[in-house]
Each structure stands twice: as structure tokens, then as C-alpha cells.
């Protein structure tokens, strides 16, 4: 009985993450359009896109291609159920942040395997750029999360949220300001927004990993991006903004973070890969290390 209850709740969280992620993407397109002084598509445009993609025929390059692309979405959905979302915290004893981060790696591995088995070098170049960039943003992010670990004396998201309870001044955002800024820049890289979107450069490498994806494969890719947005902003909300009393406030907090990323995305050009990585290892890492020193000493 307990099992089925948890199962249904998990499906609910998965559906929530997909819809919130798609909605964020749609609102993001609208906001970007307004920054460009355009009218922009409707906010639900990404739902329409996903439905269309799943109803469209597609080509595949074999079983590894199918499996990899399904793994990309599925592994992120498997990770999202461990994330405390407002009052919904399905597995409070099992919400280790590092576990969630490593489970997300499964999604990247699956996606990378899928698109590379298509045999298109553009896809592989995109993956190689994405992985190089991952090396860039993971390091400052690691510095920040380990500072939070030491600061909160716990590694479970549930307890990190609990440690921040009691008002705005207890949020890690206020208490660990340098870490927050570093993590915010890392988040920009994690979301793959400009200036760190070299992996999917459409004009250079024909949209990189997506080059051979059609129909439902692209649909899976879009779902993965949606869940990824939800998961990554959700981790940030739990780490720095003290979680949330309920789902709505949680989503609003997530949107604040996403909004900042959007604004940066709308006005900045793109880094080269090595520039992006060395930027990540200079400014955000420096901030993260300063924060770490403050915490440790």
C-alpha cells in the first residue's frame, strides 16, 4: 500500500517537474521575446511543441540510440523524486545531494551515448563541448556544496532545508553570499544558457547533440531539458533559499532563479569552450574558495 502511494506521488512529482519545466521554457521564450521587443510565442508553446514532436515520425540509428535518449529523460525523472519540492518530500531520509548529482550524471551519460551512436561528428563535438563545460562548472559548484555541507553539518537536502528554517536571514543565500553567487554562475552553465551554450551552437555545429534527433527523440530531449531546469533550480532553491513551505512558493522561487538566468542569457554572447571553462575556474571558483575558507576557518 505504502509502495503504491509513494509510486503515485512520485509520478505526480515527475509530472509536476515536466510541466513546470516546459512552462518555464515557454515563459522564458516569451520573456526573451519581450527583451528583443518582439511579441513572442504563447507561454504554453513548449507543450504544443512536445505534443507535436511525439506525434511526428522519426528516424533512429539503432537500439543504443533509442536507449540512450530514453535514459536521458528517465534518469532525470528518477532523480527528481528525491528532491524535496516544497512540502512534498517523498524520501526525506534519502535526499543526499551528491547522490542526486551523480544520478543526474546518468542522464548525461545516456544522452551522450544516444546522440553519439548516431555517428554524426557534430553530435559528438557537441557532447565533447558539453562535457568540457561540465568540468568547468562542476568544480565551483562542488566548492559551494561542500561549503554548505560543512556549514550545515549535513549532506541531506532535507536537513539543509531544516537548518535554514526561521526566516530570510537564515537562508544560505544571505549567510553564504559568495557561495550563492558562485553557484548562480555555475547554474548558468548547468542550464546551458548563454554565455555557456557552446554545446548546442546551431550555426557552428548544427545544434550539436540534437543534430540527428527527430520527432519523439527531440521530444525526449525537450522533456529532459524541462526536468533538468526543474531539478537544477530546485536544488538551488533548497540549498540557498531555504526550500519552501509549499509547492507554489517553491515554483516561484525556482522561477526567480530561472529569471536571472534568462536575463543573462538574453543579453550575452557565447564563450568559446576553453574561455568558458577558464572563466568558471577563475571567478566562480575564486568566490567558492573564498566562501569555503570563510566556512572552514
Amino acid at each position: 500500500m505504502m509502495f503504491f502511494l509513494k509510486l503515485i506521488q512520485s509520478i505526480g512529482v515527475g509530472a509536476l517537474s515536466i510541466s513546470v519545466g516546459l512552462l518555464f521554457m515557454g515563459i522564458g521564450r516569451k520573456i526573451t521575446a519581450r527583451i528583443h521587443r518582439r511579441y513572442g510565442p504563447p507561454a504554453i508553446q513548449n507543450f504544443i511543441d512536445v505534443f507535436k514532436l511525439f506525434s511526428k515520425n522519426s528516424i533512429s540509428h539503432g537500439f543504443a540510440y533509442d536507449l540512450g535518449i530514453i535514459a536521458g529523460t528517465s534518469a532525470l525523472l528518477a532523480a527528481v523524486v528525491f528532491l524535496p519540492v516544497g512540502q512534498i518530500n517523498l524520501f526525506p531520509a534519502n535526499s543526499s545531494l551528491i547522490m542526486i548529482l551523480y544520478l543526474m550524471t546518468m542522464a548525461y551519460l545516456g544522452m551522450a551515448m544516444g546522440v553519439s551512436s548516431s555517428g554524426n561528428p557534430n553530435a559528438t563535438i557537441g557532447i565533447s563541448r558539453a562535457l568540457t563545460m561540465m568540468m568547468g562548472y562542476k568544480v565551483p559548484f562542488a566548492a559551494v556544496i561542500f561549503s554548505v555541507y560543512i556549514f550545515a553539518r549535513t549532506g541531506s537536502l532535507t536537513n539543509i532545508i531544516a537548518a535554514q528554517s526561521g526566516g530570510l536571514l537564515n537562508w544560505n543565500m544571505i549567510r553564504l553570499p559568495f557561495g550563492f553567487i558562485a553557484a548562480e554562475i555555475a547554474l548558468q552553465g548547468m542550464l546551458g544558457e548563454k554565455p555557456f551554450d557552446m554545446a548546442i551552437a546551431p550555426a557552428e555545429i548544427a545544434s550539436g547533440p540534437m543534430v540527428e534527433m527527430s520527432g519523439k527523440y527531440l521530444g525526449f530531449g525537450m522533456l529532459q531539458h524541462a526536468v533538468g531546469i526543474f531539478l537544477e533550480t530546485g536544488i538551488m532553491v533548497n540549498l540557498f533559499m531555504g526550500g519552501a513551505p509549499n509547492v507554489w512558493i517553491f515554483v516561484i522561487k525556482q522561477f526567480e532563479l530561472f529569471f536571472i538566468a534568462l536575463l543573462v542569457n538574453a543579453i550575452l554572447p557565447r564563450f568559446r569552450v576553453e574561455e568558458g571553462v577558464s572563466f568558471m575556474w577563475k571567478i566562480p571558483l575564486l568566490l567558492g574558495v573564498i566562501q569555503a575558507l570563510i566556512v572552514v576557518l
Binding site: S55, S58, S60, D66, K216, G219, F220
Partner: peptide, 14 residues
């Protein structure tokens, strides 16, 4: 769930 979604959606060809 991923596989269900994969198989109920439109056809693919190799």
C-alpha cells in the same frame, strides 16, 4: 515510463 512513452508515440524507422 520512458519506454511506454517511446512506444505509444509515433513510429520510428531505423
Amino acid at each position: 515510463f520512458g519506454f511506454i512513452l517511446f512506444f505509444i508515440s509515433a513510429k520510428h524507422k531505423y
